[in-house]
Design a protein around this nucleic acid. Structure first.
Length: 704
DNA sequence: CAGTGAGCGAGCTTCCGCTTGACTT
């Protein structure tokens, strides 16, 4: 009996789906895309662009098998996968295309048809949004056709990225430096780094002073009667900062030294903290970066291990978490039920909300093909799997498990007390107001399990400081007043994780690419990490400036991706094909390219131009970095290959002195010997250098 | 004491997005 064939994208998913479907089905994985644009044709685009009679352009892509960038040949592993799929499809009655439920997934199914030459009459498209038995059964009961509008939206996206990326990179080679690149995603990522650095460099720090008083209740027998409050306002004075310098601080200290302090107002408020939604790729990367100090790449690596499965004692290989490349916070209803049970059993009904929490706030451009990142079973709590995981695997699993369970727990309730203490100076008559906020946890709720790591630019303090019991009108003793110099701080530089956070906010990049984006800007030499934070390099600045000048409406527009996504949605809705969308974009981009190519400077935007003139062709010399430090090279390179040594002042050239001829013949090759200058003075060298390496001391001349 | 010098930059670059191992140290 022939088995029906089911094709998914990932092998781990194939295994799980296979288990649910049983032996009547063969489930295989495509391992992602199986075809891509060819690197043939003008500019290596793999796209033929034809002007139609109506003036519109038509874009005809050529797709080929995936090429391995190392060997430049067809990827042999992919080749085998496609061949195997072809074989299985041939013998199957029905081929279920079960690639991911998003734009790229639809495209993979579409590519599979031609790559594996699958008989169209055999195919059915199925989509799962979660890998649970009911979801899979439901999906098989509701098959459909391949959505060609979705495929066209993919084709538009693919061609836009290639046209912009390849043509944009080519301009950079001509104008700035070889081997570098531009792209819809990477160039904006770099721009964010460059913009932030500019802000930091232009930041003017402002001095201010904090004045703090240590108060105590008048009755000395009270325990814990001492607390600190900060000067918060001076009535009638609204200047910012409140205390600008030291003399001002001293003045205030003096002014209130001997005054009376009274509790003026007490405000008690109940504050609610809600748990964060379960992880998606970007939030997992951020939290793992903040709390575990994992890089996004490291996080994805470890998550992949947890996803693919680890041996758990008698259980055998088990996938511990759901898919780790996701932009959705959705959680299957089965798992929610499991989680409620777990919370009820282990924490009690106080910790369980009446109805399960729904997290539906969508990320910009989200495709929601998968669930949130969660444990596959809530009953495998961190302690129970610890013996089978290595340290890092455990840390990450622990984080994922806790975040998930916490997201379904009751709110944390805090009692926040704001106290204002007032004094009227008897010398100046000014009224000073001190303030302190005490916060006490009333009900710990989800924070029993998990507290989200705070962002680097977020200054929330988690104080659980109880204040002594105070009453309005109560007189306090002031034990000490201290003042401290402070300065406003510039924004902090990006970490890999916080850069990804800002890219995601703008809808730029996808869960599968976040980690590679931050790698690309480093690989290209655009940015370097110092203590884990990005600083743009000179090259990064030059490239960004150049691209900003010419491509502000497309490559360098932070909103460009979002605008494109809108048009892709139009294609999905069937309102337009991809040709009008590409056409509208192409002409202005071509114009921008032309302007950029005609702009001043011949590949010297990056290498510093000098006043020194080339003795051979009279063009200017450029300062370049070689293996052994800086040297001068003709700007006419490679037409003119003249080089000179840079003098120690870094500005002038060391003039080339032609070697002095002598009558002496080389005793090895019979060519004339010449006098050359070496590090240790003049010496006799064969003029046949570097072929003949013969060299003699100068004293040889005298002895003849 | 023995050994110095020239050359260095330069190539088929590059995009984004979907997936994992296969090499080896």
């Amino acid at each position: 009996m022939n088995k029906d064939l089911v094709i998914v994208e990932s092998p781990a998913k194939a295994r799980t789906v296979g288990r649910f479907l049983g032996s009547k089905y063969e489930v295989v994985a495509s391992m992602g895309h199986v075809r891509d644009l060819a690197n043939t044709g003008p500019g290596g685009l793999g796209i033929e662009i034809i002007e139609e009679e109506d003036g519109l352009l038509s874009f005809n892509p050529t797709y080929t098998a995936i090429i391995d960038p190392r060997t430049k040949k067809v990827d042999s592993r992919k080749k085998k996968i496609v061949a195997d799929i072809r074989k299985s499809a041939n013998s199957a009655n029905t081929v279920y295309l079960a690639t991911d439920a998003d734009r790229e997934g639809e495209a993979i199914s579409w590519h599979l048809l031609s790559a594996a030459k699958i008989d169209v009459s055999k195919i059915k498209r199925v989509v799962f949004h979660e890998i649970t038995k009911p979801a899979i059964e439901d999906a098989f009961a509701n098959t459909r056709e391949i959505d060609l509008n979705l495929v066209d939206a993919y084709q538009a996206r693919r061609m836009i990225d290639k046209i912009i990326g390849y043509k944009g990179s080519s301009v950079l080679w001509k104008k700035v430096k070889s081997k570098i690149s531009a792209g819809r995603v990477q160039s904006v990522a770099l721009k964010l780094v460059v913009n932030l650095e500019e802000k930091i460099q232009n930041f003017k720090k402002v001095e201010f002073w904090n004045i703090e008083a240590n108060f105590r209740k008048s009755k000395l027998d009270e325990k814990k009667g001492s607390f600190y409050a900060k000067l918060y306002a001076i009535e009638g004075y609204s200047q910012k900062p409140l205390v600008p310098d030291e003399s001002n601080a001293n003045e205030i200290e003096k002014d209130i030294k001997n005054s009376e302090y009274e509790v003026d107002k007490i405000k008690i408020e109940e504050k609610i903290r809600k748990p964060a939604p379960p992880f998606i790729t970007s939030t997992l990367q951020q939290d793992a970066s903040r709390t575990l100090k994992f890089s996004p790449a490291q996080t994805m690596n470890i998550a992949q291990q947890l996803y693919q499965g680890l041996k758990l004692g008698t259980e055998g290989e088990v996938g511990l978490i759901t898919y780790m490349r996701t932009d959705s916070t959705n959680v299957s209803s089965i798992f929610l039920k499991e989680t409620s049970e777990y919370i009820l059993k282990n924490y009690g009904d106080k910790f369980l909300p009446k109805t399960p929490r729904k997290y539906s706030k969508k990320v910009k451009g989200a495709q929601e093909a998968h669930e949130a990142i969660r444990p596959t079973s809530v009953f495998r709590d961190p302690a129970s799997v610890k013996p089978y995981l290595d340290t890092d695997q455990f840390k990450l699993y622990d984080l994922i498990w806790k975040r998930m369970v916490a997201s379904q727990m009751e709110n944390t309730i805090l009692d926040s007390t704001t106290v204002e203490i007032v004094t009227n100076s008897s010398t100046s008559g000014k009224k000073y107001i001190f303030q302190v906020i005490g916060s006490v946890t009333k009900f710990k709720g989800f924070r029993t399990l998990y507290i989200e790591g705070t962002d680097d630019d977020d200054l929330t303090v988690n104080n659980d400081d109880a204040l002594p019991v105070l009453t309005e009108g109560e007189v306090l003793k002031c034990i000490e007043i201290t003042s401290e110099q402070k300065f406003t701080e510039p924004p902090r530089r990006y970490t890999e994780a916080s850069l990804i956070r800002d890219l995601e906010k703008a809808g730029i990049g996808r869960p599968s690419t976040y980690a590679t984006i931050v790698k690309t800007i480093q690989d290209r030499g655009y940015a370097v990490k110092d203590k884990g934070r990005f600083t743009p390099t000179k090259l990064g600045n030059v490239v960004t400036n150049f691209l900003n000048q010419h491509f502000n409406k497309n490559i360098m527009d932070v909103k460009f991706t979002a605008k494109i996504e809108k048009q892709l949605d139009d294609i999905v809705e069937g309102n337009t094909g991809y040709n009008p969308v590409l056409s509208a974009l192409y002409s202005p981009f071509q114009q921008a390219l032309k302007n950029a190519e005609e702009a001043d400077g011949v590949k010297n935007l990056f290498f510093e131009q000098t006043e020194i003139v080339c003795q051979l062709c009279e063009r200017y010399m450029l300062k370049r970095d070689g293996r052994n430090g800086q040297f001068l090279a003709c700007s006419g390179f490679p037409d003119c290959r003249n080089t000179m040594q840079l003098a120690e002042d870094g500005k002038t050239a060391i003039p080339k002195t032609p070697p002095k001829e002598t009558d002496h013949k080389c005793d090895k090759c019979n060519k004339t010997m010449v006098i050359k200058e070496g590090r240790r003075g003049e010496f006799l060298a064969c003029s046949g250098f570097p072929k003949c390496k013969n060299a003699k001391p100068l004293t040889l001349l005298d002895s003849v």
